[in-house]
Protein backbone atom coordinates (compact mmCIF):
# COMPACT_ATOMS: atom_id res chain seq x y z
CA UNK A 1 0.00 0.00 0.00
CA UNK A 2 2.80 2.32 0.90
CA UNK A 3 4.40 1.75 -2.46
CA UNK A 4 1.21 2.70 -4.24
CA UNK A 5 1.01 5.82 -2.15
CA UNK A 6 4.63 6.85 -2.45
CA UNK A 7 5.18 6.54 -6.20
CA UNK A 8 2.51 9.11 -7.17
CA UNK A 9 3.78 11.32 -4.36
CA UNK A 10 7.31 11.11 -5.77
CA UNK A 11 6.05 12.01 -9.24
CA UNK A 12 4.16 14.94 -7.76
CA UNK A 13 7.29 16.18 -6.00
CA UNK A 14 9.26 15.88 -9.23
CA UNK A 15 6.67 17.84 -11.21
CA UNK A 16 6.55 20.46 -8.48
CA UNK A 17 10.30 20.90 -8.66
CA UNK A 18 10.07 21.23 -12.46
CA UNK A 19 7.41 23.93 -12.15
CA UNK A 20 9.27 25.90 -9.49
CA UNK A 21 12.61 25.81 -11.32
CA UNK A 22 10.99 26.70 -14.63
CA UNK A 23 9.22 29.64 -13.02
CA UNK A 24 12.35 30.85 -11.27
CA UNK A 25 14.45 30.64 -14.41
CA UNK A 26 12.08 32.77 -16.37
CA UNK A 27 11.43 35.42 -13.75
CA UNK A 28 15.15 36.19 -13.63
CA UNK A 29 15.40 39.64 -15.25
CA UNK A 30 17.92 38.55 -17.87
CA UNK A 31 17.55 37.62 -21.51
CA UNK A 32 19.20 34.32 -22.47
CA UNK A 33 19.28 35.53 -26.07
CA UNK A 34 21.53 38.41 -25.00
CA UNK A 35 24.05 36.01 -23.53
CA UNK A 36 23.80 33.62 -26.43
CA UNK A 37 24.38 36.38 -28.97
CA UNK A 38 27.30 37.83 -27.04
CA UNK A 39 27.72 40.96 -24.99
CA UNK A 40 28.51 43.05 -28.07
CA UNK A 41 25.92 41.64 -30.46
CA UNK A 42 23.62 44.00 -32.32
CA UNK A 43 20.05 44.32 -30.99
CA UNK A 44 18.38 42.92 -34.11
CA UNK A 45 20.39 39.72 -33.75
CA UNK A 46 19.41 39.47 -30.09
CA UNK A 47 15.77 39.94 -31.05
CA UNK A 48 16.03 37.26 -33.76
CA UNK A 49 17.59 34.75 -31.37
CA UNK A 50 14.98 35.65 -28.76
CA UNK A 51 12.26 34.71 -31.24
CA UNK A 52 14.08 31.56 -32.39
CA UNK A 53 14.28 30.31 -28.82
CA UNK A 54 10.55 30.88 -28.44
CA UNK A 55 11.12 33.30 -25.60
CA UNK A 56 8.46 35.64 -26.95
CA UNK A 57 5.72 33.07 -26.27
CA UNK A 58 3.65 33.28 -23.05
CA UNK A 59 5.24 31.59 -20.05
CA UNK A 60 2.39 29.12 -19.54
CA UNK A 61 2.60 27.96 -23.16
CA UNK A 62 6.35 27.44 -22.79
CA UNK A 63 5.88 25.50 -19.58
CA UNK A 64 3.19 23.31 -21.14
CA UNK A 65 5.49 22.61 -24.08
CA UNK A 66 8.33 21.85 -21.69
CA UNK A 67 6.24 19.43 -19.65
CA UNK A 68 4.99 17.78 -22.85
CA UNK A 69 8.59 17.30 -23.89
CA UNK A 70 9.50 15.83 -20.51
CA UNK A 71 6.73 13.28 -20.78
CA UNK A 72 8.19 12.20 -24.12
CA UNK A 73 11.72 12.03 -22.72
CA UNK A 74 12.72 15.28 -24.40
CA UNK A 75 14.41 17.54 -21.85
CA UNK A 76 15.00 20.22 -24.45
CA UNK A 77 18.15 21.44 -26.14
CA UNK A 78 20.97 23.51 -24.73
CA UNK A 79 20.80 27.15 -25.78
CA UNK A 80 24.57 27.21 -25.89
CA UNK A 81 25.47 24.07 -27.81
CA UNK A 82 22.19 22.92 -29.33
CA UNK A 83 22.85 19.45 -27.90
CA UNK A 84 20.03 17.49 -26.20
CA UNK A 85 19.97 18.31 -22.48
CA UNK A 86 19.33 14.79 -21.23
CA UNK A 87 22.19 13.37 -23.30
CA UNK A 88 24.57 16.04 -22.04
CA UNK A 89 23.57 15.54 -18.40
CA UNK A 90 23.91 11.78 -18.75
CA UNK A 91 27.34 12.18 -20.33
CA UNK A 92 28.47 13.99 -17.17
CA UNK A 93 26.77 11.48 -14.91
CA UNK A 94 29.55 8.82 -14.79
CA UNK A 95 32.01 11.35 -13.38
CA UNK A 96 29.50 12.47 -10.77
CA UNK A 97 28.69 8.87 -9.89
CA UNK A 98 32.39 8.13 -9.40
CA UNK A 99 32.76 11.12 -7.13
CA UNK A 100 29.63 10.21 -5.19
CA UNK A 101 30.79 6.64 -4.67
CA UNK A 102 34.25 7.85 -3.68
CA UNK A 103 32.72 10.21 -1.13
CA UNK A 104 30.49 7.43 0.20
CA UNK A 105 33.53 5.22 0.71
CA UNK A 106 35.15 8.02 2.70
CA UNK A 107 31.94 8.47 4.69
CA UNK A 108 31.92 4.79 5.54
CA UNK A 109 35.64 4.40 6.17
CA UNK A 110 36.15 7.48 8.28
CA UNK A 111 32.64 8.23 9.54
CA UNK A 112 31.44 4.75 10.36
CA UNK A 113 34.88 3.49 11.33
CA UNK A 114 35.44 6.27 13.82
CA UNK A 115 31.80 6.13 14.91
CA UNK A 116 32.12 2.46 15.82
CA UNK A 117 35.43 3.07 17.53
CA UNK A 118 34.12 6.00 19.57
CA UNK A 119 30.68 4.51 20.24
CA UNK A 120 32.08 1.19 21.48
CA UNK A 121 34.43 2.95 23.91
CA UNK A 122 32.64 6.10 25.11
CA UNK A 123 34.92 8.47 27.00
CA UNK A 124 38.12 6.81 25.79
CA UNK A 125 40.94 8.69 24.03
CA UNK A 126 39.59 7.38 20.72
CA UNK A 127 36.22 8.90 21.51
CA UNK A 128 37.77 12.25 22.35
CA UNK A 129 39.90 12.16 19.20
CA UNK A 130 36.83 11.39 17.15
CA UNK A 131 35.06 14.38 18.71
CA UNK A 132 37.90 16.60 17.52
CA UNK A 133 37.46 15.08 14.06
CA UNK A 134 33.75 15.89 14.11
CA UNK A 135 34.42 19.46 15.15
CA UNK A 136 37.04 19.93 12.45
CA UNK A 137 34.96 18.19 9.80
CA UNK A 138 31.94 20.37 10.49
CA UNK A 139 33.92 23.59 10.78
CA UNK A 140 36.17 23.42 7.75
CA UNK A 141 34.50 24.50 4.47
CA UNK A 142 34.82 21.87 1.77
CA UNK A 143 36.23 24.18 -0.90
CA UNK A 144 38.93 25.39 1.49
CA UNK A 145 39.85 21.85 2.46
CA UNK A 146 39.99 21.01 -1.25
CA UNK A 147 42.37 23.85 -1.99
CA UNK A 148 44.60 22.90 0.93
CA UNK A 149 44.71 19.23 -0.11
CA UNK A 150 45.36 20.28 -3.69
CA UNK A 151 48.20 22.57 -2.71
CA UNK A 152 49.78 20.13 -0.31
CA UNK A 153 49.38 16.76 -1.97
CA UNK A 154 49.20 17.76 -5.63
CA UNK A 155 51.33 20.86 -5.98
CA UNK A 156 53.98 20.55 -3.27
CA UNK A 157 54.31 16.81 -2.69
CA UNK A 158 53.22 15.92 -6.24
CA UNK A 159 51.63 12.71 -4.98
CA UNK A 160 48.25 13.30 -6.59
CA UNK A 161 47.30 14.96 -9.89
CA UNK A 162 46.27 18.59 -10.13
CA UNK A 163 42.61 18.12 -10.87
CA UNK A 164 40.86 16.53 -13.80
CA UNK A 165 39.40 13.06 -14.14
CA UNK A 166 42.20 11.31 -15.98
CA UNK A 167 42.14 9.15 -19.06
CA UNK A 168 39.90 6.42 -17.65
CA UNK A 169 40.58 2.96 -16.28
CA UNK A 170 40.15 1.95 -12.64
CA UNK A 171 43.57 2.88 -11.29
CA UNK A 172 43.81 6.16 -13.16
CA UNK A 173 40.31 7.15 -12.07
CA UNK A 174 41.05 6.19 -8.45
CA UNK A 175 44.27 8.20 -8.61
CA UNK A 176 42.43 11.29 -9.84
CA UNK A 177 39.47 10.68 -7.55
CA UNK A 178 41.41 10.44 -4.30
CA UNK A 179 41.57 14.13 -3.39
CA UNK A 180 38.08 15.18 -4.52
CA UNK A 181 36.55 12.18 -2.77
CA UNK A 182 38.50 12.94 0.40
CA UNK A 183 37.44 16.58 0.27
CA UNK A 184 33.81 15.75 -0.21
CA UNK A 185 33.87 12.80 2.12
CA UNK A 186 35.73 14.15 5.11
CA UNK A 187 33.29 16.90 5.97
CA UNK A 188 30.34 14.53 5.51
CA UNK A 189 32.06 11.76 7.46
CA UNK A 190 31.88 13.88 10.61
CA UNK A 191 28.10 13.62 10.62
CA UNK A 192 28.21 9.86 10.19
CA UNK A 193 30.72 9.53 12.96
CA UNK A 194 28.57 11.51 15.36
CA UNK A 195 25.38 9.75 14.37
CA UNK A 196 26.83 6.28 14.73
CA UNK A 197 28.70 7.11 17.90
CA UNK A 198 25.54 8.33 19.63
CA UNK A 199 23.42 5.47 18.33
CA UNK A 200 25.92 2.84 19.26
CA UNK A 201 26.52 4.25 22.74
CA UNK A 202 22.77 4.27 23.35
CA UNK A 203 22.32 0.72 22.10
CA UNK A 204 25.24 -0.60 24.12
CA UNK A 205 23.63 0.81 27.25
CA UNK A 206 20.22 -0.71 26.58
CA UNK A 207 18.55 -3.60 28.37
CA UNK A 208 18.80 -6.18 25.63
CA UNK A 209 22.55 -5.67 25.41
CA UNK A 210 22.87 -6.09 29.14
CA UNK A 211 20.85 -9.30 28.86
CA UNK A 212 23.04 -10.54 26.04
CA UNK A 213 26.18 -9.86 28.02
CA UNK A 214 24.68 -11.59 31.05
CA UNK A 215 24.05 -14.66 28.90
CA UNK A 216 27.78 -14.73 28.17
CA UNK A 217 27.71 -13.60 24.55
CA UNK A 218 31.09 -12.23 23.44
CA UNK A 219 31.60 -8.46 23.22
CA UNK A 220 32.28 -8.69 19.51
CA UNK A 221 29.02 -10.48 18.83
CA UNK A 222 27.13 -8.03 21.01
CA UNK A 223 28.62 -5.12 19.09
CA UNK A 224 28.45 -6.39 15.55
CA UNK A 225 25.39 -8.61 15.62
CA UNK A 226 23.10 -6.74 17.98
CA UNK A 227 24.00 -3.16 18.84
CA UNK A 228 25.42 -2.07 15.49
CA UNK A 229 22.56 -3.52 13.53
CA UNK A 230 20.15 -1.25 15.36
CA UNK A 231 22.44 1.76 15.51
CA UNK A 232 23.18 1.74 11.82
CA UNK A 233 19.59 2.24 10.66
CA UNK A 234 19.72 6.08 10.76
CA UNK A 235 23.06 5.88 8.96
CA UNK A 236 21.43 4.07 6.05
CA UNK A 237 18.74 6.71 5.86
CA UNK A 238 21.31 9.49 5.85
CA UNK A 239 23.46 7.60 3.35
CA UNK A 240 20.56 7.41 0.93
CA UNK A 241 19.78 11.10 1.22
CA UNK A 242 23.45 12.07 0.88
CA UNK A 243 24.03 9.77 -2.06
CA UNK A 244 21.07 11.29 -3.85
CA UNK A 245 22.37 14.78 -3.20
CA UNK A 246 25.84 13.81 -4.38
CA UNK A 247 24.36 12.50 -7.61
CA UNK A 248 22.98 15.94 -8.23
CA UNK A 249 26.56 17.17 -8.42
CA UNK A 250 28.94 18.50 -5.81
CA UNK A 251 29.33 21.93 -7.34
CA UNK A 252 32.12 23.36 -5.19
CA UNK A 253 34.25 20.23 -5.06
CA UNK A 254 33.87 19.66 -8.79
CA UNK A 255 34.82 23.28 -9.42
CA UNK A 256 37.93 23.15 -7.22
CA UNK A 257 39.17 19.88 -8.71
CA UNK A 258 37.91 20.44 -12.27
CA UNK A 259 35.96 17.25 -11.99
CA UNK A 260 33.82 17.04 -15.14
CA UNK A 261 30.58 16.11 -13.43
CA UNK A 262 27.06 17.47 -13.29
CA UNK A 263 28.08 20.13 -10.77
CA UNK A 264 30.54 21.65 -13.24
CA UNK A 265 27.90 21.47 -15.95
CA UNK A 266 25.42 23.27 -13.70
CA UNK A 267 27.95 25.95 -12.84
CA UNK A 268 28.80 26.60 -16.49
CA UNK A 269 25.11 26.65 -17.43
CA UNK A 270 24.31 29.20 -14.75
CA UNK A 271 27.16 31.45 -15.92
CA UNK A 272 25.81 31.41 -19.47
CA UNK A 273 22.14 31.40 -18.47
CA UNK A 274 21.62 28.23 -20.46
CA UNK A 275 18.11 27.75 -19.05
CA UNK A 276 17.32 24.30 -20.50
CA UNK A 277 20.63 22.96 -19.18
CA UNK A 278 20.09 24.53 -15.74
CA UNK A 279 16.64 22.95 -15.71
CA UNK A 280 18.15 19.64 -16.78
CA UNK A 281 20.76 19.55 -14.03
CA UNK A 282 18.25 20.56 -11.35
CA UNK A 283 15.67 18.07 -12.55
CA UNK A 284 18.28 15.35 -12.67
CA UNK A 285 19.22 16.09 -9.07
CA UNK A 286 15.55 16.09 -8.11
CA UNK A 287 15.06 12.78 -9.89
CA UNK A 288 18.00 11.26 -8.04
CA UNK A 289 16.74 12.48 -4.67
CA UNK A 290 13.17 11.37 -5.27
CA UNK A 291 14.20 7.96 -6.64
CA UNK A 292 16.75 7.18 -3.95
CA UNK A 293 14.50 8.35 -1.13
CA UNK A 294 11.84 6.09 -2.51
CA UNK A 295 14.32 3.23 -2.71
CA UNK A 296 15.49 3.85 0.87
CA UNK A 297 11.90 3.84 2.07
CA UNK A 298 11.34 0.54 0.36
CA UNK A 299 14.57 -1.04 1.58
CA UNK A 300 14.15 0.12 5.17
CA UNK A 301 11.79 -2.65 6.23
CA UNK A 302 14.19 -5.22 4.83
CA UNK A 303 16.82 -4.02 7.29
CA UNK A 304 14.50 -3.51 10.25
CA UNK A 305 12.07 -6.40 10.71
CA UNK A 306 9.98 -4.27 13.08
CA UNK A 307 8.94 -2.02 10.22
CA UNK A 308 8.14 -5.04 8.07
CA UNK A 309 5.91 -6.35 10.79
CA UNK A 310 4.08 -3.01 10.90
CA UNK A 311 3.28 -3.34 7.20
CA UNK A 312 5.54 -0.65 5.87
CA UNK A 313 5.51 -2.34 2.50
Amino acid sequence: MNLLRRVPLAIGVWLGVAAIVFGLMYVVPADPARILAGAQADPSTVAAIHAQLGLDRPLIIRFAAYLGGLLHGDWGQSYLTGEPVLGTVLSHFPATLELALGALIVYLLFGCGLGILAGSRPGSWADRLASVFVLAGKSVPGFWLGLVLLFLFASQLAIFPLGGAGEGGFLDTAYHLALPALTLGLSGAAYYMRLLRQGLAAELGSDYVRTARAKGIGEGTVLWKHALRNAILPVFTLLGVDFAQLLGGAVLTEAVFDWPGIGQLALQSIATLDVPMIMGTVLFAATAIVAINLAVDLVYPLIDPRLRDRGAL
Binding site: L150, F151, L162, G163, V256, F257, D258, P260, Q268
Partner: peptide, 10 residues
Protein backbone atom coordinates in the same frame (compact mmCIF):
# COMPACT_ATOMS: atom_id res chain seq x y z
CA UNK B 1 37.56 23.61 -17.01
CA UNK B 2 40.60 24.34 -14.87
CA UNK B 3 39.96 26.62 -11.93
CA UNK B 4 42.29 29.59 -11.53
CA UNK B 5 44.17 27.93 -8.68
CA UNK B 6 44.67 24.66 -10.52
CA UNK B 7 45.80 26.48 -13.65
CA UNK B 8 48.46 28.33 -11.66
CA UNK B 9 49.63 25.19 -9.88
CA UNK B 10 49.78 23.21 -13.11
Amino acid sequence: GLSEQVEDLK
